[in-house]
Amino acid sequence: MSKDIKVSTSHKGDIAVISIQGDVTAVTGEVIGNAYGSNDILNSPKILLQFDKDCYINSGGLASLIDIASEGRKKQQKIHAYGLSDHFQKIFHMVGLTRCIPIFTSEEAAMKDF
């Protein structure tokens, strides 16, 4: 695993959770992609991306998240996100990523809206 990112997966009921800490970049995006590509996550209809509030995301990282959103759409998965800092919530809105990965202010809100 890349030293700049920590990614773990879990399940909460029928929701697959991908927890992300650290730098989301073109380099580390592969780690998130691998987590998403694991059988138990890839076949889940509901996926929650749980970002640490200190996550750093650059344009290469956005590309990796768009890849996941694109794959999720093909599989008719619903993907939600929460935990992003105010700044990266703004960036998600600016690049249009919220159209495919809606962001929520809390885990409870993100899970309730699936």
């Binding site: 590309a63 768009i66 959103a69 600016m94 249009g96």
Partner: peptide, 13 residues
Amino acid sequence: DGFPCRRGYGVFL
């Protein structure tokens, strides 16, 4: 199709 493009956000940002 309304989906965000994969790259090209550096200059935009």
